[in-house]
Nucleic acid binder design. Structure first.
Length: 483
RNA sequence: UCCCCAGUAGCUCAGUUGGUCAGAGCAUCCGACUGUUAAUCGGAGGGUCGUAGGUUCAAGUCCUACCUGGGGAGCCA
């Protein structure tokens, strides 16, 4: 990962001048048309008088070259040169330049242009035409202009550098910038890829509860009152429920928000993040790692194939992503400790690997790296004891390249009832909250394995974005609950 | 919880050993310009220097405390 500059984040309103998004299922003309019909302007003028021209999204403009069209959008930039003027418009599908020529528009239209400000929402009517001088290669020669929603001149976001705190305070506006759209599109591609990957392989998606009793990870819990039941806690994982579902349905995955009340202030942490947790009956730890590398590779290659425009907008070095194909290197924990010790770390066998150790390991590879079979003490109670070395458990962490850290934690699950009970006791966990979980080993226990993939860390890595807060629309951080 | 860093105009910042130190660029407003691309050019407005104390003839500058935020550690995905 490149050096992190916390102070400056480039943010241009119309930086995507060079691109219009490629046609794709998400932006199909039909879907856009339907969406458009449902989104008439709130208090437009009498549009029936204005024109019978079709309302089109900017992404569809090239297909309408030579036709008169209506566009509804936001003003991102204004330029005026006496008797000719330009307004760059953004509608979420792309950007387009509109041209006003004083001698060719009614005086009232010319006057209305003078009132435009950044982020005014407008409806324009005019002829779409190919124009090499226009960003995106298509522009609209305006014949009519309606202001739909004026925008005061103190709109905070400028096509300049802003500090991260300012941008997060204005996240609801920051989302309008070209980079943020590119990130959102790639996140959406990853999410859709996740669903497609598992659907096509016969996995069942199971939605697990967000309000839970106190089970799961050891780290911080968000508590809330729950009727007469005392406290409920926001879920830190859906895994234990996923294990129950795997016994019922075979191959399952969960996909939902999870919550950690950890006072972590790093570029890898959110208090609310999205996690994908497959759980597969009859998979052992090796099967688990094979699934992980295949899954992660699929997601990366899918974004490479379908979102080249957005990756270019983000200036992502795609060569580094092309390497991401199975198999991934695998280091067992003991070898990993030896490796980091050779590189100067004072980590000893038995310690968990710290962030510095992970960086030392990843530095040798251009793919994600598995580190597997950690000491029992470093890992959670539900991980299966390694029959070949009972000091360790059958688990794996997948470390992303370029310093993005752990994107997956996975394990084969302890399926031996007695050992699981013993581990619960060792961890000092209240057994009564886990009785239903122990039942999975009482009634037809089974080999199974699963993992959790952190969506934001994965998307940040694929996008080349240095902080997870930028790859979720409205991040929840230790010091940030709004917007 | 611990370590480091920062708070000066709407935004991003400069401000030297304390002494024309209230500044720049952008944004905004006014004016000029018929092909602009973060347009350009001319002009204008805009700040209790995070808060509270203290040192001093004099504090944006030095000291103390506090507040707010950022980066990292731990924890984790």
């Amino acid at each position: 990962m490149p050096p992190f500059n916390p102070k400056k984040t480039p943010c241009t309103i119309d930086g995507s001048a060079r691109d219009a998004p490629p046609p794709s299922p998400q932006w199909s003309a039909q879907a856009i048309g339907i969406l458009g019909a449902a989104q008439a302007p709130r208090h437009s003028l009498d549009t029936s008088v204005m024109s019978s021209a079709p309302f089109v999204r900017i992404a569809e403009l090239p297909a309408h070259a030579g036709q008169t069209v209506v566009i509804r959008a936001w003003v991102t930039h204004l330029r005026s040169s006496g008797k000719i003027a330009f307004a760059v418009l953004r509608d979420g599908t792309g950007i387009c330049q509109s041209v006003f020529v004083k001698s060719q528009v009614p005086a009232e239209v010319w006057a209305r242009f003078a009132e435009l400000t950044t982020e005014t929402s407008v409806e324009i009517t005019g002829e779409a035409r190919a124009e090499p001088r226009a960003p995106g290669g298509v522009e609209v020669g305006v014949t009519d202009l309606t202001v739909i929603g004026p925008s005061p001149s103190d709109y905070p976001i400028q096509p300049k550098e802003h500090g991260i705190d300012f941008l997060l305070d204005n996240r609801h506006f920051w989302l309008r910038s070209a980079r943020q759209r590119a990130i959102a599109v790639i996140r959406n591609e990853v999410e859709q890829g996740i669903h497609d990957y598992f659907y096509e392989r016969g996995f069942l998606r199971v939605d697990t509860p967000i309000l839970t009793a106190a089970i799961g990870e050891r780290s911080g819990l968000f508590a809330t009152e729950y009727f007469e039941e005392g406290n409920a806690y926001l879920a830190q994982t859906g895994q234990l429920y996923g294990e129950a579902a795997a016994a019922a349905f075979g191959k399952i995955y969960t996909f939902g928000p999870t919550f950690r009340a950890e006072k972590s202030k790093t570029r890898r942490h959110l208090t609310e993040f999205w996690m994908i947790e497959p759980e597969v009956a009859w998979n052992d730890s090796n099967d688990n790692m094979r699934l992980q590398e295949d899954f992660v590779s699929y997601l990366v290659q899918r974004v490479l194939e379908r979102r080249t425009t957005e990756l270019a907008e983000l200036e992502r070095d795609v060569e580094k992503l092309r390497n991401i194909v199975p198999p991934f290197p695998r280091l067992n924990y003991t070898d990993a400790v030896a490796l980091v010790q050779r590189k100067g770390s004072d980590t000893k066998w038995g310690d968990d690997l710290g962030a510095e150790d992970e960086a030392l390991i990843v530095a040798d590879y251009d793919k994600p790296v598995f580190v597997f079979n950690y000491p029992k003490e470093a890992k959670a109670f539900y991980m299966k004891e390694n029959p070949d070395d009972p000091r360790t458990v059958l688990c794996d962490d997948l470390l992303a390249p370029e310093g993005y850290g752990e994107i997956i934690g996975g394990s084969q699950r302890e399926d031996d009832y007695d050992k699981l009970v013993a581990r619960l006791a060792e961890e000092g966990l209240q057994r009564d909250a886990y009785e239903w979980y122990l039942d999975l080993r009482r009634y037809g226990t089974f080999t199974h394995a699963g993992f959790g993939l952190g969506l934001e860390r994965t998307v940040a890595w694929i996008c080349g974005i240095q902080h997870v807060r930028e790859v979720i629309a409205f991040p929840r951080l230790m010091h940030r609950l709004t917007p």
